[in-house]
Each structure stands twice: as C-alpha cells, then as structure tokens.
Design a protein around this nucleic acid. Structure first.
Lengths: 171, 171
DNA sequence: AGTTAAGTGTTATATTATAACATTCGTCTT
DNA sequence: AAGACGAATGTTATAATATAACACTTAACT
C-alpha cells in the first residue's frame, strides 16, 4: 500500500493550540477513567496512547509499532494490536475505518461516537459531536427498525488549514 | 481473520422481495449508465457485478475471487480489485469501509453517498438516502469549514428480520 | 504452596491490497 | 496493410493489515 502524502502546516494543529496541555488532558482523563473502571492502563498501553496523542493525525498500527520499537525492542504486531484493542474498548481512541488507522479520542468520558472529519491532505482528524446529525440519525434508524450497535461516521476532504495553505500557494 | 457468522433467514431479503427483478434492474441500470458515460462494462466487470448482486450482503474481495474462479480460471486478486475499482468509480457498488467488503448500490444514477445499515448478524446492508441526516451533515460540515470529498456513513447493528428471528427463538 | 486471571512474549500465518511489467485487442493513423 | 496508441487484462511477486495459538510471567486470592 502506498504511503499517504503527509502534508504538514507550519501552523499545524500541534503548534496552533497548546498541544502539551491537549496531551496531558487526554492522558489524565485516560488514567482517571481506567482507575474508575477498574481496568489497567499498563505501561505498554500508556506508551501506545502517548504515541497516538503525539499529534491529531490518523496513524497506522505498523507505524505505531515502528515508533514503539526504540522504546521497546520486543514490540511485535500483537503488542500494538492488543494495546489498540484495549484503548478502543475503553473509548480512548477511535479506529478510523476508512483508513485502517487510529486517532486519539477527546470525548472518552461522554458519548464516544462522533463525526470524524478526516483531512486527505494532512491526515488530521477533527471530532465533532454533531448533535443535529446524531438526532437525525436516531430518527432515521428508528424508522428503519434497526438496532444500533455502533456507528462509523467518517467524512473525507480538506480541512480549513489545508484549504488556506493551498489557496495561499496559488499565487 | 475470522469468518463472520453468516446468519441466513428463511425469509431472507433475497426471497422476500423479487430478487430477480432487483438484479435485472441493477444490471440494466449499470449497463445503461456505462453506455451513457462511454465507459466499458466489460465481461469481467459485468460478472463481478452480478456476483455482488447475488444477494444484499456485504461480500469480501477474496470471496468474490473464489466465486469468480469457477467461471474464470485465470482470476487473480488483481482481476477482482480492478473490477471493484471500476465499479466503485462508477458508483455501481459501495465499499463498506468498516468491513473491507462490498455491496451493490441501488442508487447509482442519483446521489451515491448513502447511509448504510449493516446487520452484524446476517451481513445484509440496507441503503438509505436519509435526507434529514444529509442535510444536518451538510450544516455541520459547513460550520467546520471543511471541504467534503467523500462520506462513509455506516451503522452496525441488527436488522429488523434478524431481530424478529431472534425474538422468535427465545421461546 | 496452589490456583487463577490478566497481561505479555513469541512464532506463525491469515487476510486484504497493490506494484510492476508483459500481453492482448480494438481503433485510429498513415 | 503496418504501426502507434490506449484500455483492459494476464501474471508474478510482494506489501500492508490483522489474528491465532500457545508459552510464560506476575500479582492477587485461597
């Protein structure tokens, strides 16, 4: 499979906002939730979650594996996939179905199913709770007499920042 | 990867409605659209489309390959994937992202992006145009200043028929 | 000490998908 | 007719994604 182009803004998400705060909040919430739920956020799981939170881009399992290896020589596919399974079960990350990739979840404590806006240019993923969409969805699903287990709501396109960057480069 | 349980109703979609008509309409529309668009629905592509339309279940690429081989001994992965790429480009089938599988599209001529209700029990997929959902989505995406390229809207759960079957089996 | 359950280590393999290059075939050009 | 072309297909190889299966460790409980 081809390596997707990894556009990267100077003013990327990671620098535009206070990403350290962003990460520490996410990890703090994760640690707290795991204690509350009586599940173990083991060192491996914590490391994988940290790697995922390095930015807001969707990241592939084998890329995480490569990034984990320097810290953990023994890391194998199963190491990553087990950690990912746990993190998904706990709602701490999203699996991006349309990319076979993973991204941190900011909404672990609340409802987990969100609308994902996925930039085809920079791979950053924006989560939106999109209440009107969810409301309309509920109605529609109810009309169909369908019993929901899970939702994957993924929009691909170009994010604001990339659109601006591209517009700037036109001149 | 595990083989998903393939539940199958006596009163399955395929027998409940006039599936022959369903298939002939789908194939007829496909043939017509390809003529209009000046693209070639070659024998291979036609055969793959027919295989996909054998039922309303999401089907895997390698399962299609196995089903194609009796008719076409030379069939290889590339054979299937090329046909699938064409059919997707032309909007004649959906790729179900959350299953890495494929299903016939009833709405080729109109808007292609639909809400998919995917039964975890029988693998049947119901397409719904869900105008209210699409309207709410447009609003939400506009608010995010996001430029849409494509949408994957996939709901997993249990379809009406399976729910009824299960309820019946409780006694 | 013995048992158990959860987590991890390790090897192997299954599943999904694409790359790369050769060949065929019909059509258009000369 | 000969050659050029583009689209489709044939063919081989391999990349990328994911899981199975079984062994081992550890901590908690009995």
């Amino acid at each position: 499979m081809n390596t997707p182009a990894q556009a990267s803004h100077d003013d990327s998400y990671a620098s535009e906002h206070d990403h350290k705060k962003c990460v520490s909040e996410a990890l703090g919430t994760a640690e707290h939730l795991c204690v509350v739920r009586g599940v173990q956020l083991t060192p491996i799981r914590h490391q994988v979650l940290e790697l995922i939170w390095e930015n807001h881009k969707a990241v592939k399992a084998y890329e995480l594996l490569d990034r984990l290896k320097p810290q953990m020589d023994a890391a194998k596919p199963a190491t990553i996939y087990r950690a990912l399974d746990f993190l998904i079960e706990q709602g701490l990350i999203h699996r991006v179905e349309s990319l076979n990739a993973f991204v941190g979840c900011r909404c672990s404590a609340h409802q987990h199913e969100q609308l994902l806006l996925i930039c085809n240019n920079c791979q950053e993923v924006e989560e939106r709770s999109a209440p009107e969409v969810m409301q309309a969805l509920s109605q529609e699903i109810k009309q169909a007499d369908f019993i929901v287990h899970s939702k994957a709501l993924e929009i691909h396109g170009i994010c604001v920042k990339c659109a601006q960057t591209m517009a700037g480069e036109q001149h």
